[in-house]
Simulated scan of single mutants.
Amino acid sequence: MIKKFLNAILGDTNNNSKESFSMYEIEFAHPNLKTLSQNLNLENYSRLNRLISDYGCKWDLTVEDLSYSITQEKFEELKLEDYDDFENVTINFNIYKSKELIVIIDNEVFNSYLESIPLQRFLEIINTFDSSFIIENEQDNFEIKIEKGDNINISNQTNFKNSILYPYNPDTFYFNNINKQTKSILDDYFLKLSQVFCFAYLFNFLEIKGDSIDFSITGKSLSKILCF
Rank of each mutant, 00 (worst) to 15 (best):
L193F: 01
F28N: 02
E207T: 08
I26A: 00
I9N: 07
D214V: 08
N159L: 11
K180V: 01
E19R: 03
V63S: 00
L165I: 13
D60N: 12
F86W: 14
L191M: 08
K148L: 04
N39E: 15
I217S: 12
E115T: 06
W59K: 01
Y166P: 05
D214S: 08
F28K: 04
I52L: 03
S221F: 11
Y68K: 13
K4C: 00
F122N: 01
E81N: 14
K34N: 15
I26Q: 01
C57K: 04
I135C: 09
D82S: 14
N151C: 11
I125D: 12
Q181A: 05
I70W: 13
K58S: 12
Q157A: 15
T71H: 12
Q38G: 02
I213W: 03
I217W: 08
V109A: 07
P118C: 07
D214A: 10
F5P: 02
G210D: 10
Y201K: 04
S53T: 11
T182S: 07
D54F: 15
F86G: 01
I146Y: 13
T128Y: 10
D82L: 11
A29M: 11
E138P: 04
G11L: 04
M1S: 15
Q195Y: 11
I164W: 13
I185T: 08
L80N: 04
N141C: 06
E87G: 02
N153C: 04
S216V: 04
N7V: 06
N156R: 02
L222T: 15
N127A: 14
F190H: 02
L114K: 12
L123Q: 04
C57F: 01
Y201A: 12
R47S: 05
Q157E: 14
F160Y: 15
D54I: 13
N162T: 05
F190K: 05
S37V: 08
Y24N: 00
I104D: 00
N169M: 11
W59Q: 07
S163D: 03
F160T: 07
E147P: 00
E207L: 09
N49Y: 02
K79H: 08
F203L: 08
A200L: 13
I208G: 09
S37T: 05
I70C: 03
I70P: 06
P167Y: 09
I91F: 02
D60M: 03
F21V: 03
D84P: 01
I134K: 05
S155P: 05
E43G: 01
E76M: 03
D187T: 03
D65N: 14
I105P: 04
V196F: 02
G219M: 06
M1H: 09
W59P: 05
I105Y: 00
E27G: 06
K34V: 14
R50M: 11
D12W: 06
Y24E: 00
E76Y: 01
S212W: 06
F129K: 12
Y24T: 03
W59H: 02
F21K: 05
D211F: 00
F93S: 09
F175P: 01
N7T: 08
S131L: 06
I70M: 06
V109G: 05
N92R: 12
S20Q: 00
N15Y: 06
K3S: 07
L123W: 04
E77R: 14
D150P: 00
